[in-house]
């Protein structure tokens, strides 16, 4: 079989369908990413503020937020007046390339 370099995903797709939970997981990540970025679009926020607004546990928000920070979509702002929580904001030049 002559393999077309740079377009090999299709060969594996033909042999092995993508499991449903994998596509579900992608949907769920895309949804939570949008939600988080939209909420931060309004103003910069701390983890507890995001958790309250999104009605999500703080640990989940931190995980998602730090993941977006790693992917270059979010950046860290100032720390609050009590020196307890950082504010996070949309990265000014952060582009989602995925």
């Amino acid at each position: 079989m002559e393999v077309e370099k740079g377009k090999t995903a299709k060969y594996l797709k033909a042999k092995r369908p993508v499991p449903k939970d994998v596509t579900e997981q992608l949907k769920s990540f895309t949804k939570s990413k949008k939600l988080l970025l939209n909420t931060l679009m309004e103003s910069e926020k701390t983890v507890p503020q995001l958790a309250e607004e999104l009605k999500l546990p703080g640990d989940e928000v931190l995980f998602q937020l730090m993941t977006l920070l790693k992917y270059g979509l979010v950046e860290t702002g100032e720390i609050d007046d009590m020196d307890e929580y950082f504010y996070y904001k949309i990265k000014s030049n952060g582009k989602d390339k995925s």
Binding site: K7, T8, A9, L12, V18
Partner: peptide
């Protein structure tokens, strides 16, 4: 990570050296 890959091929399309090989 093939267990979590959707086989969309996005990685292959951007790879400048065409080093990704799903075969």
């Amino acid at each position: 990570d093939i267990e979590n890959c959707t086989l969309c091929g996005a990685c292959e399309r951007v790879c400048p050296t065409q080093c990704i090989d799903f075969t």
